[in-house]
Design a protein around this nucleic acid. Structure first.
Lengths: 214, 214, 214, 214
DNA sequence: TATGAATGAGTTTTCATTCAT
DNA sequence: CATGAATGAAAACTCATTCAT
């Protein structure tokens, strides 16, 4: 006899956790942690509610897995770029910003950012993980690069950490914009375009070459 | 029976709703909408749970009141500045950014921003209200001012809306940083310092003449 | 004295908690802890499920309250008798056993005993509380009284703690019998009759003088 | 009966149900019926959860098998003793009590007793089976033997069933004590010592002639 | 108007049982 | 026969909302 329809049971142990995390990401990203229902996550993942508990002990654990899923890959990308250390400082910046805008465009990073911000009060340890593993290293690396540029006389004087914030903020805001205002019909931003135009603006604003150091 | 006349323990009836909204803001800002408990709001407001329902029909209504509370005053401040339209363009910018950074520092705007971002999926009408009433007008006014500056030859060519985003993003990110990462012990940013350093960077980066204006 | 700084009355312990504990006792006694449903307890107590959680944090807490409810009153009764210390040793025994058989007959002690035995593996701390606060003191007092009687030459030689066990066991078994076998139609035991006949048997069996009394 | 010389090897399959029952006994005895998890039983039995269902239809069936396992062997031992019917009445008693205390010491009877008591509300048919097949026959046989002794003038007047209860209770309580209070650190009782000291006490207390010496 | 005990619908979590492998 | 992933019905617990006082 031929199977007439969908089997009730499907054994796919290896794929299940990732499917659940992927479904959970969508729901959490849309609703936030507390408003997300396990039932919806299960339905979207195509499993029963009980099956989730074969892989995750609690709803919080799923949330943690979702958020941490966003840390590791981006972390390694950033670290790869720091290790690469290309030719000139402007090219380094253009490269870094290009990578960031690519991540922002092609991965669901924006949804994770939104979750980290929105749930930072309820999951401070996740905010800490993001800060310690991703945000502070990235910001710190940029700050040090800027300070080095200042020491070489290539970049303007001023607080290098604040300059680093000036550099990356538009990309971050673009991502948040996409998650927050595009769904309600706001005009989108072209993230790579924002990024590249902003880098050039930033480089000009930081330049010491036109002399007249005041 | 109570004596007919003045009750001995009179509450300030008119102030109640504001007290509730203020308490609700703190709780919502910390926990988000779904994880906030009416009980906590009532306790922090110093009223009974039942009393809240004398002024608000549902929990959602309280949340709406909290978020909308943040729109109106800031809206009028921004509009006042746009109306003022001071002397030179750089001074206009410095003024606007100064106002924004002052709002960011002295009001709980950051908490509302966090709530709007975090709950945009659950309350799209609030995201829309923020966008339509505050974000788009402000961004639009800046975009138009930048376009005018470009038309006068004072500012670099490029997408003026993206330049506007470049201009305001660091302030926004500073505010989000304060809400998200400072509570877990991250180094803070001095928001006015970030703002003023960034405006000068932006002005230099936008200049069409090689001379800096100091 | 009316205004500021009034220490608000804590929630008055009305009759609700006692009603819940009484209902819970019946259900737990019948089903055991795990098989008892909060819903049944609520229904029997005439309240909603949610109301239970106004007075007890968890199902376990209700169970603890039920079991501990059985310790305190009996403890004080036993202690009262130990303090009374009547005339002759046989009369003391007859009195103690009479009190015990009265407790066994008129209070739901049997149900609690059944619960303590049946749930000792899941709630060892309750078994410990019963042992430390009720069983060991009672058994210890009897053991010492028997040892004193042996020292005076009034009672047979032998392990006094084992003799104490011999003395009280039939009352305990009667109570267990009532809870376990009477519901399925077994012939009941007349607990006071068992107790008084057993005490006389025990006294004769412990006597060092060959005279018998009718 | 199995033929003598049956091979001892590769009887894995035939032993499975017994291994499951043995594992189930340990878990049920520790947790009670409802709190016991099939998963734990399977793990302790060294089989998969699904394998249990090859031998038992439901969890209740396993429980029934566990409890009934305790009935049959003890039943036959008691019946064997009743059939033996040795020389003197005191020696009969000493023999019976010796057998009981041996069973209590060497078999997990205590755990079954605890289960029967604790689950009598949920499994009245098991309480009935224990009562009808084991407890009532044993108690009835003792009652009749005591009544016969009374008729012969060897034993005191009084309710013979209550005297039978007096006789066996300490052994039963000792067993319950071991299950309930020893795990939480209470001083143990030496069951055979309790039993033999108690039989002598009982015999002296029941004697009609004043000079009974053991 | 104000209270807070009470409600009950909704949510997470558990686990006996089933079934594809 | 055996396995153990998957199911889904139940059960504990939560909390916005109501209502008697």
């Amino acid at each position: 006899m031929l199977p007439a329809g969908e089997p009730k049971f499907k054994r796919r142990k290896a794929e299940r956790p990732d499917e659940i995390v992927a479904a959970a990401f969508e729901i959490f990203s849309e609703k936030g942690f507390a408003a997300a229902r396990l039932d919806d996550i299960a339905t979207r993942a195509g499993v029963s509610k009980g099956a989730i508990y074969l892989y995750f002990a609690t709803k919080e654990d799923i949330f943690r897995a979702v958020v941490e899923m966003g840390v590791a890959p981006n972390l390694s990308l950033i670290q790869a770029y720091i290790a690469a250390n290309p030719d000139s400082f402007p090219d380094l910046l253009r490269g870094v910003v290009g990578v960031i805008s690519q991540i922002a465009t092609t991965t669901p990073l924006g949804g994770v950012v939104k979750m980290v911000i929105g749930e930072s009060g309820n999951f401070p340890e996740l905010a800490r993980a993001w800060h310690d593993q991703l945000v502070r290293p990235a910001l710190g690396a940029m700050t040090m690069a800027i300070a080095a540029g200042q020491a070489r006389g290539e970049l303007r004087a001023g607080d290098p950490r604040q300059y680093a914030l000036s550099l990356i903020s538009p990309m971050l805001v673009s991502v948040i914009w996409r998650e927050t205002f595009e769904p309600i019909g706001a005009d989108p931003f072209d993230i790579p375009a924002v990024a590249s135009q902003h880098v050039e603006l930033w480089l000009r604003g930081m330049a010491t070459t036109p002399e007249t150091r005041s």
